[in-house]
C-alpha cells in the first residue's frame, strides 16, 4: 500500500492540486460573501453549477463541438477556452448579484437576523437547481472534449497533464488578480471596510449596497471560473453537481478560516490534496468522511480555522 502510494504520489498530488484550485475558487465565493455579510451564501453551490453549464453551452453550441469533432489547436483552442472561461465567469457573477438582490437585500434592510436569509437563499438554490434539472431532464450532460489532453512532461514518473496545468496556472493568476483587487483598488478598500465594520463604513459615505453587490459579483466570478475548470477537468456536469462540490468548498473555506481570503487558498489546497490522498487509501466512498473528520479536529483545536485569527481580531 505504502509502496504503491509512493509510486503514485506525484500523479495523485497533481490531481489533488488541480482539484484544490477548483475548491479555492468556489471557497472564495463563500468567503468573500461571509466577509461582508457574516452569512453563508447557500446559493453559491448552484451558481457554480450554472457556471459549468455555461461552459458546456459555449463549447457545444457556440463553437459547435460534438463528441466526435477533432480537437481544436493553436489560436482557435485558446479562443475557445478563453471565451468559455470569461462567459462562465460573467454568467455566474451576474447570477450571483441577482441572488443577492432577490434573497438577501430586502431581509438585510429589515435587519432580520441570520436564519431568514439562510432559508431564502436555500429557496433560491432550489429554484436554480430545479430549473436546470427540468431543462436537462435530470440527466447528466457530457462536455465534448475541445482540447487534446496530452502530457506536457514527466515529473518523477508522473505525467503532467495539460488541463491540470492550465487549471493551476490560471487559478493562480485569478487569485493574484483578486488579491490585488481587494488590497489595491478603491472598491477593494471599501469591501474591506464593510467587512470590518459596516456601520462605520456607512458613516464614511460608503455605499453599502453597492459594495455588497460588488462582493457577490466578485465571488460569483471566481465561482464561475471554478465551473469552467471543473468542466475542463471532469468533462461532465449535472443539475445536482453543486451540492457536493459546494459542501467541499465550504469545508475548505472553514478549514482556512471563513471570511479570510488567504485562508480559502490554503484551505482549498489542503482539502484537495487530502481528499485525493484519502480516496487512494480508503476508497473514494470514504473521502467525505475523512474531510469532515479532519474538519472537526481542526475546529476543535483551532476554532477559527487555520488562518482565522486575523478575522476575529478585526471583527471584535
Amino acid at each position: 500500500m505504502i509502496g504503491n502510494f509512493l509510486d503514485q504520489f506525484w500523479s495523485l498530488t497533481f490531481g489533488g492540486l488541480s482539484l484544490g484550485f477548483i475548491y479555492i475558487l468556489i471557497a472564495l465565493g463563500y468567503t468573500m460573501v461571509y466577509g461582508v455579510l457574516r452569512m453563508i451564501n447557500f446559493a453559491n453551490s448552484e451558481i457554480f453549477m450554472v457556471g459549468t453549464f455555461a461552459t458546456i453551452i459555449i463549447i457545444k453550441d457556440v463553437f459547435q463541438f460534438t463528441q466526435t469533432s477533432e480537437y481544436a489547436t493553436g489560436f482557435r483552442l485558446w479562443l475557445i477556452l478563453g471565451t468559455a472561461l470569461i462567459s462562465s465567469m460573467l454568467v455566474s457573477g451576474i447570477l450571483s448579484m441577482l441572488v443577492e438582490m432577490v434573497a438577501y437585500r430586502r431581509l438585510r434592510r429589515m435587519n432580520s437576523g441570520v436564519l431568514a436569509p439562510l432559508i431564502s437563499a436555500i429557496g433560491v438554490s432550489m429554484v436554480l437547481s430545479e430549473s436546470v434539472r427540468i431543462l436537462t431532464d435530470s440527466r447528466p450532460v457530457a462536455s465534448p472534449r475541445a482540447m487534446e489532453k496530452k502530457f506536457l512532461g514527466q515529473f518523477f514518473d508522473a505525467g503532467i497533464r495539460i488541463d491540470n496545468t492550465i487549471i493551476v496556472i490560471s487559478a493562480l493568476v485569478l487569485f493574484g488578480i483578486l488579491i490585488t483587487f481587494v488590497n489595491k483598488t478603491r472598491m477593494g478598500k471599501a469591501i474591506r471596510a464593510v467587512s470590518m465594520n459596516p456601520n462605520a463604513a456607512r458613516l464614511m459615505g460608503i455605499n453599502i449596497d453597492g459594495v455588497i453587490s460588488a462582493t457577490f459579483l466578485v465571488g460569483g466570478l471566481m465561482t464561475g471560473a471554478a465551473g469552467f475548470f471543473y468542466t475542463l477537468k471532469y468533462e461532465n456536469t449535472s443539475a445536482f453537481i453543486g451540492f457536493e462540490l459546494g459542501i467541499a468548498a465550504f469545508t475548505a473555506a472553514i478549514l482556512g478560516g471563513i471570511g479570510n481570503i488567504k485562508g480559502a487558498f490554503y484551505g482549498g489546497l489542503a482539502l484537495g490534496l487530502l481528499e485525493t490522498y484519502a480516496s487512494f487509501f480508503l476508497g473514494t466512498q470514504w473521502k467525505a468522511v475523512t474531510v469532515f473528520v479532519v474538519l472537526v479536529l481542526v475546529l476543535y483545536t483551532r476554532p477559527n480555522g487555520l488562518f482565522g485569527e486575523a478575522l476575529t481580531q478585526t471583527r471584535a
Binding site: 432580520s112 431568514a116 431564502s120 436555500i122 429557496g123 429554484v127 430549473s131
Partner: peptide, 21 residues
C-alpha cells in the same frame, strides 16, 4: 408535477421576504 420543487423554492423565498419571522 415536475416543477413542484421549483415552485416550493419560490414560495420559500417569497415567504421569507414578506415575513422573515
Amino acid at each position: 408535477s415536475d416543477a413542484r420543487l421549483l415552485v416550493f423554492g419560490l414560495v420559500l423565498v417569497l415567504m421569507m421576504n414578506l415575513r422573515p419571522d
